[in-house]
């Protein structure tokens, strides 16, 4: 069984790549090769809706999703501690996926 984290952002400079990079780093540190991380545009999120286990959004979300949603803005403007806290929160969600 493998899992997928989708990091979504508006467009352009792809702030989602920032979140993607940091999450991937942490996953690899914790030996979680079974979790894939991809970045997508928020406008295309429908295409992934049934195919993601955690959504990390760099912007406000205006609707419900089937999977847990985390706001990824601290990746861009958070202190080191806030970035770490956000990664911890995501890793906790990842660990909960195992229990399903």
């Amino acid at each position: 069984m493998s899992y997928r984290i989708v990091v979504a952002c508006g467009a352009g400079i792809n702030t989602s790549t920032l979140g993607e990079d940091m999450i991937r780093e942490r996953l690899s540190k914790e030996g979680r090769g079974d979790v894939e991380v991809i970045h997508v545009l928020m406008s295309n999120i429908e295409a992934y809706e049934d195919n993601m286990d955690i959504l990390v959004s760099m912007q406000q979300v205006y609707r419900e999703f089937k999977c847990p949603v985390v706001i990824g803005l601290p990746f861009l403007i958070g202190t080191k501690a806030e970035k770490e806290e956000l990664l911890n929160k995501i890793m906790e969600l990842v660990r909960n996926l195992n229990k399903k």
Partner: peptide, 9 residues
């Protein structure tokens, strides 16, 4: 982005 975000934080 990572460098700038470190500064923003």
């Amino acid at each position: 982005l990572r460098r700038l975000s470190d500064m923003f934080g």
